[in-house]
Amino acid sequence: DVEEQIRRLEEVLKKNQPVTWNGTTYTDPNEIKKVIEELRK
């Protein structure tokens, strides 16, 4: 469920934690926001 994935990513973003997505770890909040934007398409 895309909405659920977006919610999880936004939670991690608020906590300033790194996100691992498709084998890539993102630590930059701007990169995480880009992943969220991609999911919304």
Rank of each mutant, 00 (worst) to 15 (best):
L13H: 03
N30Q: 10
R7L: 06
D28R: 01
K14R: 14
T25R: 02
K34D: 05
E3Q: 13
Y26F: 09
K34T: 06
V2H: 09
T24V: 15
I6Q: 02
R8Q: 12
P29K: 06
V2P: 06
N30P: 03
R40D: 01
V35S: 01
K33P: 01
P18Q: 10
T20V: 14
T25C: 04
E38H: 11
K34E: 05
E31S: 05
N30W: 10
N22V: 02
I6T: 02
K33F: 07
I36V: 04
T25V: 14
L39T: 01
V2A: 07
V2F: 13
K41I: 09
P18A: 10
R8Y: 15
Q17A: 08
K14G: 09
V35D: 01
R40Y: 06
L9A: 02
R7I: 08
E3W: 15
Q17T: 10
T27R: 03
L39W: 03
L39P: 00
K14E: 11
T27Y: 09
V2E: 04
K33A: 12
N16I: 03
E11V: 05
R7E: 07
K33H: 08
I6R: 01
T25S: 05
E38I: 12
K14N: 11
G23R: 00
V12G: 15
V12P: 03
E38C: 13
Q17W: 14
W21A: 14
P18W: 05
R7H: 08
P29D: 04
V19L: 13
G23H: 03
P18G: 12
K14Y: 10
I32E: 00
W21C: 15
T25W: 08
Q17R: 07
N16V: 04
R7Y: 04
K15N: 13
E31G: 03
R7Q: 09
R8M: 15
E37G: 04
I6E: 01
P29A: 09
P29I: 09
Q17F: 15
L9Q: 00
K14H: 09
L13W: 05
K14S: 12
T20M: 13
T25M: 07
D1S: 13
Q17L: 15
K41N: 11
E10D: 04
V2Q: 05
N16M: 08
P18C: 14
Q5Y: 07
E4M: 10
V2S: 04
K14F: 10
E37D: 12
L39R: 00
Y26D: 01
V19R: 00
D28N: 05
R7D: 04
E38D: 06
V12I: 10
V19T: 05
L39F: 03
K14V: 11
P29C: 06
T25Q: 05
N16Q: 10
P18T: 14
E4F: 08
E11S: 08
Y26M: 10
T27N: 11
L9P: 00
T24E: 14
E37C: 09
R8D: 07
N16G: 15
N16K: 12
E4V: 10
L13F: 07
K33V: 11
L39G: 00
Y26S: 01
I32H: 00
R7A: 10
V12Y: 15
I36Y: 02
E31A: 06
R40A: 04
T20P: 03
K41P: 02
K41S: 09
Q17M: 15
T25G: 03
E3H: 11
P29L: 07
L39I: 05
T24K: 11
I36K: 00
T20Q: 15
V35K: 03
D1N: 13
G23Q: 02
K33E: 08
I32F: 07
T27H: 09
E31T: 03
I32G: 01
K34S: 08
P29N: 05
L13K: 02
E10Y: 05
I36G: 00
L9F: 11
T27I: 05
I32N: 00
R7G: 04
N16D: 04
E10R: 04
L13I: 13
W21P: 11
Q17I: 11
E11D: 11
N22T: 02
W21D: 07
I36W: 03
W21K: 11
E38W: 11
E38T: 10
I32R: 00
E3S: 08
V12R: 14
I32Y: 01
T27D: 10
D1A: 09
P29E: 08
V2W: 06
V12Q: 15
Q17C: 14
T20R: 10
T25A: 03
I36H: 00
Q5A: 13
T27E: 10
N16T: 07
K33G: 06
L13D: 01
P29S: 06
I6D: 02
V12H: 15
N22G: 13
Q5E: 08
W21Q: 14
T20H: 15
R7V: 05
Y26L: 14
E10T: 07
K33D: 03
I36S: 00
K34F: 07
E10W: 04
N22K: 06
Y26Q: 01
K34A: 13
T25H: 06
E38Y: 08
N30M: 12
R7P: 01
V19P: 14
G23M: 00
P18V: 10
T27K: 05
V12K: 14
K34W: 08
W21N: 12
D28I: 02
R40E: 04
K41A: 13
N22L: 10
D1H: 11
P18E: 14
I36A: 01
E37S: 06
Y26R: 00
V19W: 14
K15H: 13
R40I: 06
Y26G: 01
D28F: 01
R40V: 05
K15M: 14
E10N: 06
N16S: 08
P29R: 04
V2N: 06
E37P: 01
D1M: 13
D1E: 12
N22S: 03
Q5P: 02
